[in-house]
């Protein structure tokens, strides 16, 4: 059965056998489900069960193997990329994605965890295929206040989610848009932040979007201070938070162009902070001129 989804205004399809998942394996996608698209799809993915690992083809080009992150091993052949994936570096591979060079048409063979495999393949295809549409798949936690999105960036474990939670607990009218992988996209000159079906460990899948109020890099500190970020620093901070896949030629140009435009139009800051209520108030007041 082919199902269609729309994320940040871009529509893609998943062809998956009926009864593939025992439970609600695709529940995070339901808010994004749409009618069959009339125009071109961002990408189409066909997912099937495989008996066992496929034998590989192509030349090994990159092995993304970092602690606490999924392992992605890239092979390239004349016509296609193949990406073998595992939930963590220490776990065995559970699926193999074969995609055309533009990542718009792909087949996924799954012999291990289906939920991880589908989510990971969809995120990867989305990040690659959406780059020409001024879209960035970010690693960030996003709070919404007064219909504006505030993105918190930072290295793994610096407290992005915690800072977002502190906003919700201490500032009236704050909600969470996404806790891990929102999409930032420029549409008609406006920098918008969209919810997505991917939100890390926090189930928060919202088909909503808001203009970006500010982008804030979170750094751990013993004090709570908010400082504006110089453009080049903001560029570096955002670039490092994009699922950039800089090793695929051509994509970097798109991502560079989008990140540059974001830096030019959105206020960017660094928030040195403790994980406490005051941090949320200092940050919010500094960003909005509020007096909480």
């Amino acid at each position: 059965m082919i199902r269609y989804f729309q994320v940040a205004g871009l529509c893609f399809s998943l062809d998956i056998p009926d009864g593939f998942f025992a439970g609600d394996g695709l529940s995070n996608y339901l808010p994004f489900e749409c009618e069959a698209a009339s125009g071109a799809l961002l990408f189409s993915l066909e997912a099937r069960r495989a008996e066992s690992a496929l034998s590989g083809e192509g030349k090994l080009v990159y092995d993304a193997c970092e602690n606490d992150f999924p392992r992605l091993t890239f092979y390239e052949s004349a016509q296609a990329f193949r990406v073998d994936m595992a939930p963590l570096p220490e776990l065995p591979y559970c699926a193999s994605l074969i995609a055309d060079k533009s990542f718009r048409s792909a087949k996924l063979s799954i012999w291990g965890s289906p939920k991880f495999s589908i989510d990971n393949a969809m995120m990867l295809l989305y990040a690659f295929a959406s780059a020409p549409y001024a879209a960035l798949e970010m690693h960030a936690s996003v709070s919404v206040k007064d219909s504006k999105a505030y993105l918190f960036l930072g290295k793994s474990g610096t407290g992005k989610s915690t800072h977002s939670r502190l906003w919700r607990e201490n500032i009236p009218g704050v909600s969470l848009l996404n806790d891990d992988n929102p999409i930032v996209r420029i549409i008609e000159g406006n920098v918008l932040c969209f919810g997505s079906p991917w939100s890390g460990k926090t189930p928060c899948y919202k088909a909503e979007n808001y203009p970006v109020g500010a982008i804030v890099r979170i750094e751990r500190s013993s004090v709570n201070t908010l400082k504006p970020q110089a453009p080049v620093r903001a560029y570096a901070s955002i670039f490092s938070s994009v699922s950039a896949f800089r090793y695929i030629k051509g994509l970097s140009d798109n991502i560079h162009a989008t990140v540059s435009r974001v830096v030019e139009s959105v206020p960017c800051y660094v928030m040195e902070c403790r994980p406490d209520a005051e941090a949320a108030l200092v940050c919010y007041n500094g960003l909005t001129g509020g007096k909480l």
């Binding site: 080009v61 990159y62 453009p231 080049v232 560029y235 570096a236 670039f239 490092s240 800089r246 090793y247 030629k249 970097s252 560079h256 540059s260 830096v263 030019e264």
Partner: peptide, 27 residues
């Protein structure tokens, strides 16, 4: 290594397969 212009300033960024682990930018 690619020269990029960001808000009127110049930076060099590591791009492409061989620079995937180059995580700094040079102004």
């Amino acid at each position: 290594f690619v020269l990029r212009q960001v808000c009127g300033e110049y930076v060099i960024v590591g791009e492409g397969l061989e620079r995937v682990n180059f995580n700094k930018m040079i102004s």
